[in-house]
Design a protein around this nucleic acid. Structure first.
Length: 506
DNA sequence: CGGTATTGTAGCGCTAGTTAAGCGAGTACCGGAAGGT
């Protein structure tokens, strides 16, 4: 088995040796066992399912959270000469989608979004295949996004059952034990062989800097940027702030190429910014949490948190984008006391108020009574009830789970609806409490006076490895003696625009 | 003291407009009709 895999690695990729964890995960996959792989580095995860796709018969289905990730993968594979690969998503027009869907058997590797897997027609076509492996890439999304933001992630368990339980491979870069259990549970309580590799990066040093107000925050940030002139990501919890601080940096540091990035931008601009950062034409990115997945840049030296993430998992993920090359890198959290308001607000915003739920159910009841059993569209709901889209999707998922909605129809039953209201109140309460506890843990980490490395990973790993260089401010380390690495910024944005256009045309 | 904060996909609908699309279709499920007992 091992020699077969090694030969295949050589044949398809030209490598002589597997990277950490790849062989172990592959052996588990090749024996058709459900597998959970947590591999910290950004590279090399895809080998774990691409190799089986090339070596064996039957299809490999890969669930991927971002269209850009799917497109990247497909483009790379096509460029390497693997033609039996496709991504099925809304980038395709109706004809191409039909073409792919009708000829699924002619692909070895098929990338899809979780939303796409809710399409009945696609499922019926998939059922006619012999699926050798069902992969969930970036599997932490199941736990992190599934419960409110992208509920279709929770419906993957049902999809796996419908497809007659093919072997499942869940892959991610960071997953705490809690998230690992969540993934297993939410994929249908699968018995999974786990291959977990430590995520405490030894070359990242942690610093927290308290500031009194925004002006001091900006000054501290600028001083840091001047000191560590190297590829930097600055995380914000607000799109507007990301934009305005990017402008501030441009004015104060005209030599450092800086841009902003967030979910409200045009797709083309987002791709462009990310490409420029990867190519070293941009040194600083001011961004929201939208930036990161699929960003595999080796030499990111500094991660600044201008605002705080909602939990330690997100923080670890964001910080983990530094120092992939193994060289010493730095995380700096800038905080002032009022900063906690933002994550609290964001947590509240994800989940509906009890009064909104009651209003909604009353509204739906009136519709049913008037003979309109069709599920109203979100836009229509919004005219009557002030409810966010995420909240609506959360409730919709719960209503389907409780048989209040079936297909596109409302099913009225007095008792069911009454029970639903009670259960949903408890669920929302528990969920908010849980998220606030996670935020509280983040807060404790900021205020701790013991080793930050120990506290950050304490609940996540049995042992925390020592830092290879500097550890953290609480261990007496400072950035005073940090060697400034001169950077050369290439001013070639126009050339990149052309290259991007060329890439998009293919 | 008041305002203000993230994350993405798909989209058979009736848009936006001195823009163009070119609507294509397999399957499961349900209710009703036909036919069997």
């Amino acid at each position: 088995m091992k020699t077969d895999l090694q030969q295949a690695l050589k044949k398809y990729y030209g490598y002589d040796q597997f990277r950490t964890g790849q062989l172990e995960i592959l052996e588990s996959v090749m024996q058709n066992r459900h597998t959970l792989g947590v591999l910290p580095t950004g590279t090399g995860k895809s080998v774990c399912y691409q190799l089986p796709a090339f070596m064996r018969s039957g299809q490999v289905i890969v669930v991927s959270p971002l269209l850009s990730l799917m497109e990247d993968q497909v483009k790379q594979l096509r460029a390497k000469g693997f033609k039996r690969v496709a991504a099925l998503n809304s980038f395709l027009n109706y004809e191409d989608k039909q073409q792919v869907t009708r000829n699924l058997a002619s692909y070895d590797l098929l990338y899809v979004s979780p939303e796409m897997l809710q399409n009945d027609y696609l499922i019926s076509r998939l059922m006619q295949l012999e699926i050798q492996l069902f992969v969930v890439d970036e599997a932490h999304c199941i736990s992190q996004w599934g419960k409110e933001f992208r509920t279709d992630y929770l419906r993957l368990a049902e999809v796996v059952r419908t497809l007659r339980n093919p072997p499942v491979l869940a892959l991610t870069g960071t997953a705490t034990p809690e998230v690992q259990t969540d993934i297993q549970h939410l994929l249908g309580d699968l018995e999974m062989e786990k291959h977990i590799y430590p995520m405490d990066r030894q070359n990242i040093a942690y610093f927290v800097q308290e500031v009194q107000d925004q002006q001091e925050k900006n000054e501290t940030m600028l001083a840091l940027l001047r000191k560590i002139q190297a590829p930097t990501i600055i995380y914000f919890s607000s799109r507007n702030m990301a934009e305005s601080v990017a402008a501030l940096i441009r004015i104060n540091m005209p030599d450092m190429a800086c841009a902003y990035y967030h979910g409200g931008m045009e797709n083309e601009d987002r791709i462009l910014i990310q490409q420029q950062f990867l190519a070293g034409q941009l040194q600083i990115i001011c961004c929201t949490s939208a930036f990161g997945m699929g960003v595999d840049k080796e030499d990111v030296r500094l991660i600044i948190h201008y605002h705080l993430p909602n939990d330690k998992e997100s923080f670890i993920q964001e910080v983990g984008r530094a120092g992939r090359d193994g060289k010493e890198s730095v995380s700096v959290v800038l905080y002032s006391t009022g900063d906690w308001q933002i994550p609290v607000h964001l947590i509240e915003q994800d989940l509906p108020e009890q009064s909104s739920i009651q209003q909604l159910m009353r509204n739906l009841y009136q519709r049913v009574k008037a003979g309109m059993t069709d599920l109203p569209a979100y836009e229509l709901i919004l005219q009557h009830i002030p409810i966010g889209e995420t909240q609506w999707r959360f409730l919709l998922y719960q209503m389907e789970k409780h048989d209040i909605v079936k297909g596109n129809q409302l099913q009225y039953n007095a008792q069911t609806w009454k029970d639903f209201l009670e259960q949903i109140e408890k669920l929302v309460g528990d969920r908010k409490k849980h998220k606030l506890v996670q935020l509280q843990r983040m807060k404790e980490w900021v205020y701790t006076d013991t080793c930050r490395r120990q506290i950050l990973f304490a609940h996540f790993q049995r042992t925390v490895r020592p830092a290879s260089g500097r550890c953290c401010d609480n261990c007496g380390d400072t950035l005073q003696d940090w060697e400034t690495v001169p950077v050369s910024v290439q001013q070639d944005a126009a050339g990149w625009r052309e290259q991007l256009r060329f890439l998009l045309q293919q």
